[in-house]
Amino acid sequence: MSTSELSEDYRDCFQEITNVAMGQAADKLARFLDVFILLPVPNVNMLQPSELAMALSAVNHDESVSAVCQGFIGSGIAGEAMLIFNDSTFQEIADLMNADSDDSNQLELEILMDTANILIGTFLTGLAEQLEVRYSLGQPSVLGRHVNIEDLIKINEKRWKQTLAIEINYKIEGSNINCDLLILFTDDSLNILKQKADYLLE
């Protein structure tokens, strides 16, 4: 079976799992920032590296972005979660967090990490609970700051051909804050994910 295909059943199933996990993540972010978070329909797709940048709906391609990524591995599933911000949204988030600093560079980094901790951590926990798996989370690292989105994702293009990608676009009501949470699984995780989905589909 080619891994490049994702049947409707599997797509629906992954989408449903994503809905639950992203709802939990949004709830925590909403409580942390005391705002209302708008939830979109998540995108679940098999993507090639060249398609990845285009798939990011929150990202304004004329603008520079910053991103954090965090790896996870366990139970035969491995991948990376990425949180991508348009650089222009930092000030609005800082206002929501009541965070201020003389050093805007430092402030941006704190915001990036705090938001990543909540969104990535909760999402992956929610995912693990539903799939009944356990995995370890690596230390998050800053993937790039003030860079072009194409440059950000190009980094490892040679090493992977295609990936299962879940893209969630979080928006905060009444503001321009808009960020993309991207979960990318390795090729070999897909079979395990499908097996887990089979239990749920039965």
Binding site: Q70, M113, D114
Partner: peptide, 20 residues
């Protein structure tokens, strides 16, 4: 406190790096 309080309240793990 900014890092630790959300862990208590949101029951969520937090990571910080030396870069911060």
């Amino acid at each position: 406190l900014q890092k630790a309080e959300p862990v208590f309240i949101l029951n969520n793990r937090a990571f910080t790096t030396w870069e911060q």
